[in-house]
Computed example of a mutant assay.
Amino acid sequence: MSTSLATPLVERWAEPDGAVLLRWLLLSGACLFGVQMAWSLGLLQKVLLTDSTQISAVIIVIYLGCVAHGGWRALQLSRAHRAFARVRACFRGNRHLPPEGGTEDWAGGYCHGLVSPTADRAGLREILEEQARGSHEAGWFLSSMLLKLGLLGTIVGFVFMLGAIDALKTLTYADLPQMLGRMGAGMGVSLYTTLVGLLANIALGLQNLMLDRSAERLVAGTLAFAEREWLPHTRAETRP
């Protein structure tokens, strides 16, 4: 296939410079705005004070760590897409690949590896896919774990409520307000931990989906470029 026909197929997977980082900033900014609104209305303080198990606080801390890691991955992917654009531009300009540069030049490393006499194309592809999206598995695991922590808080809250109900056998009428307070605290733990875990899971799910999509575009674009432009050119050069 000629370069003129192959180029649109490759460009279809290209991503604008800094697009993934911009999307991460927009998502994180929207979440930060929601947190600020909850703090201004006193909802966040109420959640943290009502949850005696501190499960909500643990969920928030893990969520913030995942957001920071997502930002770092968005920056890496943005650099990787920029390096891939440099590889394409250099090859189409002078029919040669630029030297590998930077730790995020995953596409260049893959294309350079293909011309090695002992090249293992399957192994090189696995390395490319691991570099592009391997660490995202931890993000999906933590996202799922936050939801499970919220469900754990639900169970703990119901245990508190059942303990208060079980104490009815020995309580007098004067102790009834205290018992109702314990039931309310248990219900608060149950509802708030579930709410915090669910919201954190949704936000991290959107972040991980965004990162995965960007990584898939990078891998697909690199493979299309290598198969439709770079390898046909190297074969034509070595053909007697």
Rank of each mutant, 00 (worst) to 15 (best):
C66Y: 00
M183N: 00
L25G: 04
P232E: 02
L48E: 05
L209F: 09
L97V: 01
A236Y: 10
R88G: 05
T193G: 00
G150K: 01
E129S: 11
R235W: 14
A122N: 12
L22Q: 11
G188W: 02
G123K: 05
F84G: 10
R133W: 09
R228K: 11
H112D: 09
E129P: 03
M161A: 06
K169P: 02
I127A: 12
G109A: 12
S56K: 01
A215N: 08
S28M: 05
R73I: 10
E130S: 13
S116W: 07
L77G: 00
S135M: 08
L9E: 11
L171S: 13
P177Y: 00
S135N: 04
N208T: 13
E100H: 09
I155F: 11
G102V: 06
A224D: 12
A68W: 12
L9G: 05
H96Q: 15
S2Q: 11
P232K: 07
I202A: 03
R79I: 01
F91Q: 04
L147G: 14
V219P: 03
I127L: 14
P177T: 02
I127T: 15
R121H: 13
G101R: 13
N208E: 15
F91M: 08
G42W: 03
P232F: 08
W106L: 04
R133N: 08
L9Y: 01
L97Q: 03
G18R: 07
L147D: 08
N201S: 08
V87P: 01
C31S: 13
L75G: 11
Q76R: 12
H112Q: 14
A138E: 10
L97I: 09
R23Q: 11
N208L: 06
R86H: 13
I127D: 15
V47I: 11
R235V: 12
P8S: 04
Y173D: 14
L176K: 01
I60S: 02
R228H: 14
V87D: 10
I62R: 03
S40W: 12
G186L: 02
S214Q: 08
A74F: 07
H81A: 10
F141H: 13
L162I: 12
S4D: 15
G181F: 07
A38I: 02
M183C: 05
K46P: 02
W106K: 04
L26D: 07
V115D: 15
L49H: 10
A57Q: 01
L49F: 08
M145F: 15
L152W: 06
M183R: 02
Q76E: 15
A164P: 01
F91A: 05
L180R: 03
L114G: 09
W39F: 11
E126A: 14
R217E: 09
D105C: 04
Q178L: 03
G157I: 02
H81D: 06
Q178R: 00
T194H: 00
C90P: 00
F33G: 11
V87T: 09
L168D: 03
G134Q: 06
A122L: 14
G113N: 05
Q207N: 11
M145H: 04
N201M: 02
T172Q: 08
G221K: 00
P232H: 04
R133K: 12
R95M: 11
L77Q: 04
P8R: 05
W72V: 10
L218H: 08
H233T: 06
S144N: 14
V47Y: 06
A68M: 12
W24K: 00
P240G: 13
R228W: 13
P16A: 00
I127W: 14
A185E: 13
T7W: 14
W230A: 04
G108M: 01
E15W: 00
R82S: 15
